[in-house]
């Protein structure tokens, strides 16, 4: 067996998705919503939860590894820039190391302009 290829995940992030995530993820921070705090904040408008971007990395790894992603997966990421809706973002993974059934990928999330929003590594066992 060899390490699976991890598919890219592309998604349009609109404010309504961010609002739904605020409820489902129990993160009511006003900087993510249409609030005065968001417009007075560091980005001048609402920013999507970084966890929505990271969820796309998790989705990509789940698509490649199935339940093994939840059983054996790990990741280490940093957010580099905010995603400001509406924005189209793509999460992608490149195989970095394949040893003893453990596949490690470099992961990145970029917006449609090529700006990097998130970087890191993700790994899971396939054998």
């Amino acid at each position: 067996m060899t390490a699976p290829q991890v598919p890219s995940v592309t998604r349009r992030i609109e404010q309504d998705r961010v609002d739904r995530y605020a409820v489902a993820g129990r993160d009511p921070n006003p900087i993510h919503r249409e609030t005065p705090e968001a417009y007075a904040g560091p980005f001048g408008r609402p920013a999507a939860h970084g966890m929505i971007l990271l969820a796309m990395v998790s989705e990509a790894m789940g698509a490649a590894f199935g339940l093994a992603w939840a059983e054996t997966g790990s990741f280490k990421v940093r957010w580099r820039s905010p995603a400001l809706p509406p924005v189209t973002v793509t999460a992608s993974a490149t195989l970095k190391k394949d040893q003893d059934g453990l596949a490690t990928y470099e992961v990145v999330v970029q917006d449609e302009h090529g700006e990097t929003l998130l970087t890191g590594t993700a790994a899971a066992r396939y054998a």
């Binding site: 739904r20 489902a24 993160d27 969820a55 796309m56 989705e59 789940g62 939840a70």
Partner: peptide
């Protein structure tokens, strides 16, 4: 509800929790 918000298909999460959802709830 979490998968609807993130956009991920629920196909493989019928009996188990998406791992990142655990992180989100601990952050919450």
């Amino acid at each position: 509800a979490y998968l609807d918000a993130t956009g991920e298909s629920p196909a493989i999460w019928t009996q188990h929790v998406p791992p990142l959802f655990l992180d989100a709830l601990v952050v919450a």
